[in-house]
Computed example of a mutant assay.
Amino acid sequence: MIKIRHVLLAVLLAAVAAGCGSAQGSTGTEVKELRYQGSVGAVTYPELAEDLGYLGDLELKWFGNTTSGPQDIQSAATGQTDFGGAFDGAIIKLRAAKAPIKAVIGYYGSDEESFIGYYVSEGSPIRTARDLIGKKIGVNTLGAHHEAVIKEYLKREGLTPAEIEQVQLVVTPPVSTEQALRQGQLDVAGLGGVLKDKALERGGLRPLFTDIGLLGPFTAGSIVLREDFIAANPTTTRTFVAALGKAIEWAQTRPREEVVARFEQIIAKRGRKESADTVRYWKSTGIAGKGGVIADREFQTWIDWLQREGEIRPGQVKPADLYTNEYNPYAGGSGS
């Protein structure tokens, strides 16, 4: 916990130091070039919006690839980039540390086609949450989506805080998680996306539980902007968020084959020497709200979890502090 607080303090101090100087150009006009981090072998919704021509007079400037959601929003908070995206729980923690960020649109989540599952070997004796006491679950990182869902599952299944503490979460590189499960180094593996699909194709695994089975369809992560950026660039903010909303709605409503083909074209055109194999497994956006509209419950769920974990104080943050749908045209039921 001490280490996390030190990291958040460093982010906060850097964000204050960045100030308004990074929020607008030297002439005082609104920013038209938005710096961002991408993802290897994947297409982000800002990149899709740009390719579809929705950004208007705005341009994206690729700043390299992100290593994780928390890292991505920290870069946005400190002014190294202009926007970033992460699991909503990570946004809550950063905001609770007084980082001046605001979520403006949802960008990933879970639905019937795209979700995270927690799998055991077919012959495993693990059948219930209580069977997990003393066992190891492989997760991609701590303090994010996997940990939050697992602990919510254990709580709902009646385990006490002391019993939950006995369930060991093991940080495992996502590409190695399936192998670690099959070799007996893990008792349960958290798998999502293409890695889940490939693992299930090979057979021999069964689901213990899934995030969608626990929570229903939900948006799990959001894109954030700094509050000083929003204040200095209201027109750019509205154009940018509206473009993302249109790109998300495009992906939500077009045939899967058309979306995948577009992603492959974007990856080929940008010339970053990467494979497009992963996008061929794309199934859906996973985003619950049309055009990425955010709902209170998508933050409240994780506020409640973080309060139970003792990571934030009761009442320290509320959903209204964390996000706004003001700039998303779909919030009013229209995409015009």
Rank of each mutant, 00 (worst) to 15 (best):
G192C: 01
K283Y: 01
N65M: 07
E298P: 00
A49M: 04
P314F: 08
K135L: 04
K3H: 14
A18K: 08
P125Q: 02
T239V: 13
E178Q: 11
A49R: 03
E258R: 12
R5N: 12
T29S: 13
K198F: 02
Q179I: 08
E274T: 04
N233D: 06
R308P: 04
R254L: 10
P173E: 04
G203F: 01
T141C: 09
V279M: 07
F87N: 07
H146K: 05
T219E: 02
K318I: 10
A97G: 11
E257P: 08
L60K: 03
R35P: 06
K318R: 13
L322F: 06
W302C: 01
S121R: 15
I91A: 10
L8Q: 13
G21P: 08
S110N: 12
A295D: 10
T237Y: 04
V170R: 08
D228E: 11
I248L: 05
L322Q: 05
T67I: 13
D304T: 11
L244N: 04
T177F: 07
K102Y: 08
L142R: 13
T210I: 01
Q307V: 15
V188E: 09
A96R: 04
V175T: 09
G53L: 05
K246H: 14
S336K: 14
G28C: 07
D321R: 05
A97H: 10
Q74Y: 10
L52K: 08
P46L: 04
Q316H: 08
T78V: 15
V149P: 07
L9A: 12
L142Y: 05
T236R: 02
W282T: 05
L322N: 06
Q80M: 14
A103K: 03
N325K: 01
K155C: 07
L169Q: 10
W62C: 11
A103L: 03
Q316A: 13
V293P: 00
I126A: 06
R226W: 06
